[in-house]
Design a protein around this nucleic acid. Structure first.
Length: 284
DNA sequence: CGAGTATCCTGTCCGC
DNA sequence: TGCGGACAGGATACTC
């Protein structure tokens, strides 16, 4: 499940392999993969052909390739999306959704996505930051050089909800998914259902700094593990196996205090936390 | 309008 | 062995 560090690994791989290359032809193998391109698959393929890729950019979990002209090829990997740089003739992956061939005859770019939560689309880039339109409402992520920590803390405290919900809201801070939210809360020793209006500024700064630390660590681990010719979003899985303190650790002892980690139901999914280090707020 | 929830999808795992 | 159900979860359309 790609979160920000995995998406950044993919962005770097794309920067290495598709920059300054011109798209020759596009195959859309599954229409759902381009459902966010409202004009449809044939329009997507026709408009992408002949375009040259000028940059590989990212905000939060959104990834896009700037094209010549003021447009971008936007990608979201969803739950299971992968960008693969593949030599011709290599057998198609079972869940190949979109293929880009290039005019230089070099390796092609494949979008592979088992569960089709992800997708590709073309959009104008707008505003001073030259963002694709669907990214306009996404907040800066903690790895963005222009990320404003105090503004993000203020954004969280302005919400009237639980802390974990606020962390997952991509319009407040982007790039934090279920795994990193649980890890950040564990590091900050805060329960996810703590009301945001009772969160102190110091607690807010602590939990966001923790999120940034977890992301940095995952990027260090994932950024070195992918093959130069195979841009693989699963590159960071080794990090998850070894380094998670809370997420997925139900009944295993907390690394700080030894208390078994608890699993709770949250928004039709799961939250993991230490009952002792992260006590439930009173009354909840 | 803000908060919370239902929904999309498919592969894996578990119990019977 | 095979089947049914739970589970994984980002983003958004939807309701209240």
């Amino acid at each position: 499940m790609p979160e920000l560090p995995e998406v950044e690994v993919v962005r770097r791989g794309l920067a290495d392999h598709v920059l300054d290359r011109t798209v020759a032809a596009v195959d859309v193998a599954h229409p759902r993969a381009v459902r966010r391109h409202v004009a449809g698959g044939p329009d997507f393929a026709a408009r992408l052909a002949g375009r040259t890729i000028t940059a590989a950019r990212r905000r939060g979990k959104y990834l896009w390739l700037d094209l010549d002209g003021d447009e971008a090829l936007l990608a979201h990997l969803g739950m299971s999306g992968q960008m693969l740089v593949a030599d011709h003739g290599r057998p198609d992956e079972k869940h190949l959704r979109v293929r880009l061939r290039f005019a230089d005859g070099g390796p092609e770019l494949r979008f592979v996505d088992q569960r089709t939560f992800g997708g590709l689309s073309l959009h104008p880039v707008v505003g001073p930051d030259r963002l694709p339109e669907p990214v306009g409402h996404i907040a800066r992520d903690p790895m963005d050089p222009a990320f404003d920590l105090d503004a993000a803390v203020a954004g969280i405290r302005r919400r009237r909800t639980g802390l974990k919900r606020a962390l997952l809201d991509q319009t407040v801070v982007s790039g934090i998914g279920n795994i990193y939210a649980d890890e950040a809360l564990w590091r900050a020793r805060l329960h996810g259902e703590r009301p945001t209006e009772k969160l102190t500024r110091a607690q807010g700064r602590t939990v966001l700094a923790a999120a940034a630390e977890v992301m940095d660590a995952a990027l260090d681990a994932g950024g070195t593990s992918f093959d130069a010719l195979y841009v693989n979003v699963n590159g960071a899985s080794g990090y998850f196996d070894r380094s998670l303190d809370a997420y997925g650790q139900a009944d295993r002892p907390c690394r700080r205090c030894g208390t078994p980690i608890r699993r709770e139901s949250f928004m039709n999914r799961s939250s993991f936390s230490c009952p002792r280090c992260q006590p439930r707020p009173r009354g909840l």
